[in-house]
Design a protein around this nucleic acid. Structure first.
Lengths: 406, 406
DNA sequence: ATAATTTGTCAAACCGTTTGACAAAATAGC
DNA sequence: GCTATTTTGTCAAACGGTTTGACAAATTAT
């Protein structure tokens, strides 16, 4: 039940019904492929003739493709339909503090290339130039995929949705940076930019990789890394808020007088569970704001987890403390939003088997209802490249989303 | 950009475009009334003929009505169109711990009667009987409004949206109570039930009373009373979450080791800012769980505010402490959701002139961005009866909401 | 071989929208 | 006071997409 905005609405014209049903067909093919016209007609409750009309249109527009004929018990065999994904690729870009990662995927989100890494140069101009060069090389290598649908870029910071400008990215030192225009100019492709947490949440809603699964319409993606990034999907839509900063649960306090956070306040969730906090707990001194020294940088969460697995009691204690705070913070997120599922990403997930119990115990402690305490928690391992999936989703989602109407 | 649910979608048929445009017309009339067919055509960018077709249909269905002819500089004078609100009433019901309030309003949300109060009896059967009797009397008194569109009921508790059962209402001692079916049976009217905070947020989105104003698509309603209730609207839709408990910011902690809360945990926002906490701060002893004694009950927030205005320093201190915690909690809500506006209801709003400064200061302290710190805060006075408006909105909103499509 | 079954397409009937023209109603100018 | 102009609201024919029922194609059961 959405309110129609009386200042910015979208009139329905003759083609609107067709457009809506075309999108439904695309989605059914995406989630059920391979599927025949007759099956589509049954699933949609319309006549086969109506489906034929829509499908021939989609075949002409090269959005669908016909494949092998299927098997039936009796009668004429169906021709299977597929999303025409093979020849339509997507470039994913994940800009991080020190490295930038690239990948080529198809329209279903399936990787077509390995993950490429280049150093992140802070000057946006130089970064765009380096990116454009790599993207061109990547597309040339995979020239069998004729047309590229666009580039999705995720950044660790605030992105204004309408203009796609990076308003503020502290770890990169960026303020009001426009990557879209120069990258589009350099590559000739359409560019979509989004905050990484939000893009990860978007990717989980569209279930790239396993589109068959029933999607959650209310979910949260929590990324625990140098900071805590949160992306939220509610009612099947990404939450952005008035000024594109919705989802900053990382700076909701656990205790007002807790440890100092990089944002300048005290007791933020991030100050308890982000990687610097976990490491500081082990090293025995606070990881203050500002650049850490070389010794700190060398010792990573991966090392800490390894030591914990090796029996280092202090390492186990540091990780378990983080686990407890992670659960307490998740309780706030879950009480506030009541998602069907919370996806958790970041290096700490490698130790999920060690911490799950403590996380769930802390969550149960503060969750308001038994159902909330039992909220599904799903770990997304770094090997799944959630941020690159998110970047791909930025390009893929608009091709399948419901048309804007009314 | 909404994902189409491949398991529960809505096909577009021949009538869908018409239905969409009809809803747009209804919304334009609601927000711009009085308005002529020609003005509608200009606003919608369609021909006058198309508008005539839609309008005659809506006139036949008695959703619109024609009124006086308007004035123009030259040429034929327009016939003004109005929402046919006069003869279509809405019954609002606000169930609270000790009293239940009723009111009759028209389809625009304008009150048609005064506010009636009956004692809240805990037995749902008896309450429904008492309610039905009062509602029938109310409708009989206002028999000029021929048809009643339905009854909206708000309750202080969890409501399951699909079945509209009250799952849990602690202050009423209810668990899994069905008010809808018996109330509908007793009155012959359609009944909508919702959590009070959510309904208040819904009413603010639809701007009952002043429908002309540009609506916020992202807003939060915070109701500070015996507890803290929060309703959230994002992307023009009410947030319910997976199990209908989205929005429980009242139990997000300010400090994990803070004062004990009625939910059993420590340091919840509610434990700092709800009325019992404010009163306890003044009286000098904690308002523990369980029923308070008669002396406590007699001394209310209204009295406390009166004493503060009279110069009682201890009263001022108690209220200002609440103001500070209110601002700190609002910062969490604003950082998490980034709404365009936060509406604040409850008895404490009577002292808004005393506390606004402290609230804004605390908010600025923890808000992540200057824009977030400057988030519009709007006080909704008890005299506006926000919960009764919310109840009315439960019936009014479905009549104007965008049709569900795709 | 024939009947039965299922898929996919086609053309005519159908139905709602759009277009351009037109009547109605009012003001401006002569 | 009469005509030209402007604006509103409606009408009917032209238009365009959807739906219906029939039909060809392809395959298995009898």
């Amino acid at each position: 039940m959405r309110r129609i905005n009386p200042a910015r609405f979208q009139i329905a014209t003759r083609g609107t019904s067709r457009e809506i049903n075309s999108r439904i067909v695309l989605n059914l093919v995406r989630t059920h492929q391979p599927i025949s016209r007759a099956d589509l007609a049954r699933a949609m409750g319309v006549s086969r003739a109506a489906v034929t009309l829509i499908v021939t249109d989609l075949l002409h527009r090269r959005l669908l493709s016909e494949g092998a004929t299927g098997q039936t018990e009796r009668g004429r065999r169906p021709t299977f339909l597929y999303i025409n994904a093979r020849r339509r690729s997507v470039v994913s870009v994940d800009v991080r503090a020190s490295e930038t990662f690239l990948m080529l995927a198809d329209l279903m989100g399936k990787p077509l290339s390995g993950v490429i890494s280049i150093p992140t140069v802070r000057d946006p101009k130089l970064l765009v130039a380096a990116l454009a060069e790599r993207i061109k090389a990547l597309l040339a290598e995979h020239s069998e995929s004729h047309s590229c649908e666009g580039i999705g870029v995720v950044v660790p910071g605030m992105v204004e949705h309408s203009s796609m400008r990076v308003l503020h990215a502290p770890t990169l030192g960026w303020r009001d940076v426009d990557l879209r225009e120069p990258l589009a100019a350099a590559t000739g492709l359409r560019v979509q930019i989004e905050n990484s947490g939000r893009a990860c949440a978007l990717a989980q809603m569209w279930a790239l990789g396993e589109p068959t699964t029933q999607p959650h319409r209310d979910l949260v993606f929590v990324s625990v890394s140098d900071g805590v990034g949160v992306g939220v999907v509610m009612n099947g839509e990404v939450l952005r808020g008035r000024h594109n900063v919705a989802g900053e649960f990382g700076h909701v306090p656990l205790s007002l007088d807790g440890p100092r956070c990089s944002c300048g306040n005290n007791g933020c969730w991030e100050a308890y569970v982000a990687n610097p906090a976990t490491l500081a707990r082990y090293i025995g001194r606070p990881a203050g704001p500002g650049p850490r020294d070389a010794r700190d940088r060398q010792f990573t969460i991966e090392d800490l987890v390894a030591r914990a697995r090796g029996g280092d009691a202090k390492a186990v204690a540091a990780i378990e403390a983080t686990a407890r705070y992670l659960g307490l913070g998740l309780a706030s997120v879950i009480n506030a939003l009541n998602p069907a599922c919370v996806y958790i990403g970041g290096e700490i997930t490698m130790a999920w088997d060690l911490i799950e119990g403590a996380v769930r115990a802390a969550l149960a402690e503060r969750a308001l209802t038994p159902a909330a305490a039992a909220t599904e928690l799903r770990v997304v391992a770094p090997t799944e490249h959630p941020r690159l999936q998110g970047a791909a989703a930025l390009v893929i989602a608009p091709a399948f989303a419901a048309p804007v109407v009314a």
